[in-house]
Write a protein that binds this DNA or RNA. Sequence first.
DNA 1: CAGTATCCAGTTGGATACTG
DNA 2: CAGTATCCAACTGGATACTG
Lengths: 115, 115
Amino acid sequence: MAVTKEKNEINYHSAEECPITATIDVIGGKWKPPIIWLLLKGPLRFGELHKIIPGMALKVLSRQLKELEADGIIIRKAYPEVPPRVEYRLSEKGETLREVIFLLSDWSRKHIINA
Amino acid sequence: MAVTKEKNEINYHSAEECPITATIDVIGGKWKPPIIWLLLKGPLRFGELHKIIPGMALKVLSRQLKELEADGIIIRKAYPEVPPRVEYRLSEKGETLREVIFLLSDWSRKHIINA
DNA sequence: CAGTATCCAGTTGGATACTG
DNA sequence: CAGTATCCAACTGGATACTG
């Protein structure tokens, strides 16, 4: 990411350098907001997430979780049991998204009329 | 987002619990953050936007502007002149995104470390 | 239980030429 | 100047079957 000199100053010329886009890339996967929202309430297992968000294909959940993990937002903990148990929770970095998530949610409630 | 497809009506476990996606749909097009960011500073003409964000194809700029307009974020004003002059500016609703945009930008600066 | 593998469809983004 | 038209590539997301 290109270094930004002054806060709130227009100093990028491509989407790749845009810090806003960078954040959206982290939280903007189709199912990432619901996943993060749910994990803000507490850790969940893979199957629980799948059950709570029924429209989401297994493969998609799997990849979104991998991406969130790669971005340092969530932490995957596998318990050496049979049958296996895997728990996902927010990292400290992920917790810092709480403010962001809440503001996005709030803006929607205030300004998006339908739904 | 200016949605013309019904497929975006996704049955989250509870749509009201997850309005985050709705906001991201509005601001999350690839070039929308830079466009909104620029317009937060003041109105710009089509060609100015195109010049300032050189990597963006004309067709893409055109569609992103249409979508932002359809979502009530920006206002398009065409002056009846030859050659034509068209100016884009944020609506009042668009101005309310300032806080959101700044927070997203701020989070990126604080938590996305990679170069 | 917690995922992969496979294969497929829809949407988005892109380069370039053209028009009112 | 301010866009469209055309055609195309890439990516994301999806349904289902299968595995450790």
